[in-house]
Simulated scan of single mutants.
Amino acid sequence: MKTKNSVMSQIEKINLKEKFSKFSDHWSPKVIGQLNHQQVKVVKFQGDFVWHSHENEDELFMVIDGSFTMELRDKTIEVHEGELIIIPRGVEHRPIAKEEVSILLFEPGTIVNTGEVRNQLTVEKPDHI
C-alpha cells in the first residue's frame, strides 16, 4: 500500500518544451503522464493523417506550437496555438498540418492513434518519455 508521503514524493512537474525536444518523428504519440484512466501524450504532426474514428474513446487535441486543420466529414476546423478541439467517440476525422505542429493529447490508454485503421502510421503502444 502506498503511503501519502511515497505518492507525494513521485509528484514532479513536466516541462513540455523538454519533452518535445526528445523526439522529431511525426504522428507517433509519446506518453508523458497518466490522469485517472487518461494518458497525457505529446505528438508532432506534419502532413496528412488518415481518416479514422475511435468507436469507444473521445480525444482532446491541444495545440502547444503551430496550427493544424481538423477535417471532419461535414466541415473543417482550424486549430491554432493555445486552442484545443475535442473529437467525440465515433466521429470520423483527419488532422492535417502544412507545417510541423506540437500537440498535447488527452485520451484513454486504450486508444490506438489510427482507430480502426491499421497502416504504417499505427502506434499500438506509444513510448513513455
Results as ranks from 00 to 15, higher is better:
residue 3 T to Y: 08
residue 2 K to D: 11
residue 77 I to C: 06
residue 58 D to W: 02
residue 124 E to N: 12
residue 9 S to N: 14
residue 85 I to V: 12
residue 4 K to Q: 11
residue 106 F to T: 10
residue 81 E to T: 09
residue 19 K to T: 04
residue 58 D to P: 04
residue 106 F to V: 13
residue 122 T to D: 08
residue 103 I to N: 00
residue 2 K to P: 08
residue 42 V to T: 03
residue 40 V to G: 05
residue 64 I to F: 14
residue 8 M to C: 09
residue 41 K to D: 02
residue 5 N to C: 08
residue 13 K to F: 12
residue 40 V to H: 04
residue 26 H to N: 12
residue 121 L to E: 01
residue 121 L to A: 11
residue 85 I to H: 05
residue 18 E to G: 03
residue 19 K to M: 11
residue 56 N to R: 14
residue 72 L to Y: 15
residue 22 K to E: 15
residue 48 D to N: 10
residue 93 H to F: 08
residue 9 S to P: 05
residue 96 I to G: 01
residue 75 K to E: 12
residue 33 G to R: 06
residue 2 K to N: 13
residue 55 E to R: 10
residue 66 G to P: 02
residue 92 E to V: 11
residue 11 I to S: 09
residue 79 V to P: 00
residue 105 L to Q: 09
residue 54 H to E: 06
residue 111 I to Q: 12
residue 24 S to W: 12
residue 68 F to W: 06
residue 56 N to Y: 14
residue 89 R to D: 04
residue 12 E to S: 14
residue 78 E to R: 15
residue 96 I to L: 11
residue 48 D to P: 02
residue 71 E to R: 12
residue 120 Q to H: 14
residue 15 N to W: 08
residue 1 M to D: 14
residue 95 P to A: 03
residue 8 M to S: 13
residue 90 G to A: 06
residue 91 V to C: 00
residue 123 V to F: 10
residue 74 D to P: 03
residue 60 L to A: 12
residue 94 R to Q: 07
residue 48 D to M: 09
residue 74 D to C: 04
residue 3 T to D: 00
residue 37 H to T: 14
residue 87 I to Q: 03
residue 111 I to V: 15
residue 52 H to V: 01
residue 5 N to G: 13
residue 64 I to C: 06
residue 5 N to K: 15
residue 92 E to L: 04
residue 52 H to S: 09
residue 6 S to Y: 03
residue 129 I to S: 03
residue 115 G to S: 05
residue 112 V to G: 00
residue 14 I to Q: 05
residue 62 M to P: 10
residue 109 G to A: 12
residue 117 V to D: 03
residue 38 Q to A: 08
residue 46 Q to F: 07
residue 84 L to Y: 15
residue 79 V to Q: 00
residue 120 Q to V: 11
residue 113 N to T: 01
residue 7 V to E: 11
residue 20 F to D: 07
residue 7 V to A: 12
residue 125 K to T: 14
residue 80 H to V: 11
residue 100 E to S: 06
residue 54 H to L: 03
residue 63 V to K: 09
